[in-house]
Amino acid sequence: MTNLLIKGTFDTLYIVSMSTLFALMGGLPIGVLLTVWKKDGIAPFVYGEKLLSGIVNTVRSIPFIILIIALFPFTRLIVGRSYGVEASIVALVVGAIPFVARLVESALAEVDEGLIKAAITMGATPWQIVAKVYLVESVPALIRLVSLTMITLVGYAAMAGVVGGGGLGDIAIRYGLHRYQTDVMLLTIVIMVIMVQLIQSGFNFIANRLDRRRA
């Protein structure tokens, strides 16, 4: 049983970190585009922004448990089957990209608008403004966003466990629910609580260390 829980813990960590990584790779550029394409953005492209925003909202409005099941054919296409750790990652990435994109968008919205204007008057290109102003100024917010994404994905990963996605959620359902092993259920909860605490405090620490607005 201990071995099972250890394996489940590592599976969950693996699922969460891999899907966070891919979700960031997809969500960061989309969040940037949502920001710069706005009507008063640095590279306005209103139709593009509306379309992207519409797609993001559509995916976000699908309850995650339904999204996982709806994605089964797609998941099978990508990793060959619709259950297990890899299959979970596919569904989590698809579900988390729009979430990350919106978080990135709101992190970038916090950057001083006057500073963006100032960079424009200094002759910065839109690309330079993204790379040297938006992304630099929002580093602490972006790091906090990574922890928020990971924590959300711990929960999503457990949901993926319900439909055979592996990890702690899978164990909690199979042993805790179907076999009435309450101790297993409780242990999976304890492990997930600790996991979330560590992720939160670890990333907060890094974000605070890197934030130059703290004297």
Partner: peptide, 29 residues
């Protein structure tokens, strides 16, 4: 635009960069 230097009421400095890097910004561009 690079031939015009502008000073704003609200400073508008890069908060995450030090004095040296802020002054170097237009040169990095």
């Amino acid at each position: 635009r690079r031939q015009l230097g502008i000073v704003f009421q609200g400073y508008h400095l890069l908060e995450q960069k030090n004095v040296f890097e802020n002054i170097a910004f237009p040169l990095q561009l």
